[in-house]
Design a protein around this nucleic acid. Structure first.
Lengths: 226, 226
DNA sequence: GAAAAAGTGCCAGTCACTGGCATATTTTGT
DNA sequence: ACAAAATATGCCAGTGACTGGCACTTTTTC
């Protein structure tokens, strides 16, 4: 059994819990490594679990699908984001709150997460099955956002379209922001850190008011942003 | 072999082509019927192909997955829509053109299509695997829209965000419009026709300018739309 | 009417994913 | 420290979607 440095901030957990987290990480890391090396489709779960030294049966107790383990890094971010959605406060502008919760979620991720996330998205970009899983997961996140908004505002999203619009805009900002971040860091010389991701997504959020006010003018008058 | 009325507008096709279209339709119809009766997950492809009197191997020459055959009705609409995207014209407002192309695509569908589509969406609403496929397919449609816009405008969507915004809005309008249409027709007494679907989606398109100008006011001043 | 082209069925195989049960490890209570 | 309870893992035998290959039949072409 190869030993690995203990992950951050799990010093005081009971042994069983520590082992579980370790296994979960080993699975996600091994999966990402193998998928990047030889392509998602060409790696079977048998091989993956072989490398991770667990049985296939055990794998499925940690991840519900091959896609999920491949996108684990993103899943962790959505998890953190969803947790932060619970303490939305009434009062402030919804979009700003949703933006700030995203920022907090990214900051909550451990140090090496950024690198994993970037690699994950790169893999997904060239793997149809993962792209599909990614959009489905993003869609689920949007549902969670709407639910959170309904909870804090006490309104049914079917009655007030603005809830759906706000969640749409949030998803759009997250999507385009991270997409831009990925594009910038495609040249793998030096991986962008979490703060650069945050900058991109925040910029996308803050561009929303300007975008909704956008009037179609000819390119001469007003050169397109970015 | 049960005979069925010849589908519309295929009178002058060669025999081979007619047979193929027939098989494709039999598969889609049988699939929808069985899935509605007993649930998507509880119907195997063996059963489906048994009822449709073709081998499983042949099934996969017509549809690339179980999901695809379930969502065939929607796939046909996206096909028609994508075809119409080829003749986008430079000049007119993009959103209006995209709206009108959608309308034309719906009008192009045969008479019984509406019913199939409504049933399909109902099925997808309660089948996770199909919901995922639906979002993935919608995402692909958006890619096609962006490509069409790039083609007609001669611009790279990475340089001009407006292309992405317009395609986002289009997808949003189609999505919300059809969702409203579905909600209205959930009570299955009398199935809404294609024109009612068109009305809803057009309404969603036409609400976009108002939506982007939306200023958050208190409910007393301005009751939320819909 | 024969040759070519295209469609179909069968077979054997891969792989993701699941239920059930025996075995091992960790925790809990004393 | 030790037994009992709780929980995690592995193994086995399955199901079901999906694929490649090849023989066979139907339609088209000349």
């Amino acid at each position: 059994m190869t030993t690995r440095p203990a992950p951050e901030g799990e010093e005081h957990l009971p042994l069983r819990e520590r082992k579980k987290r370790r296994t979960r990480r080993v699975l996600a890391d091994t999966a990402l490594r193998l998928f990047l090396q030889r392509g998602y489709d060409d790696v079977t779960l048998d091989e993956l679990t072989e490398h991770a030294r667990v049985s296939v049966r055990t794998f499925f107790r940690y991840y519900s699908s091959k896609e999920e383990v491949a996108m684990a890094a993103e899943g962790e971010l959505w998890e953190a984001y969803a947790r932060r959605l619970h303490d939305l406060a009434p009062g402030g502008p919804a979009l700003e709150q949703l933006r700030d919760r995203y920022v907090a979620a990214v900051r909550e991720m451990p140090g090496e997460w950024t690198e994993r996330y970037l690699a994950t998205r790169g893999l997904a970009a060239r793997t149809p099955a993962l792209r599909a899983h990614h959009t489905a997961a993003t869609d689920l996140l949007q549902v969670r956002i709407i639910e959170a908004l309904e909870r804090v505002m006490g309104v049914d999203s079917r009655r007030d379209v603005r809830l759906r619009l706000v969640s749409d805009m949030t998803i759009a900002a997250v999507r385009y922001g991270s997409k831009n971040w990925i594009r910038e860091n495609r040249t793998a010389e030096r991986t962008g850190d979490g703060e650069s991701l945050i900058r991109e997504v925040v910029a996308a959020f803050d561009a929303l008011p300007g975008a909704v006010a956008l009037a179609p003018t000819s390119p001469e008058e007003r050169p397109p942003a970015r």
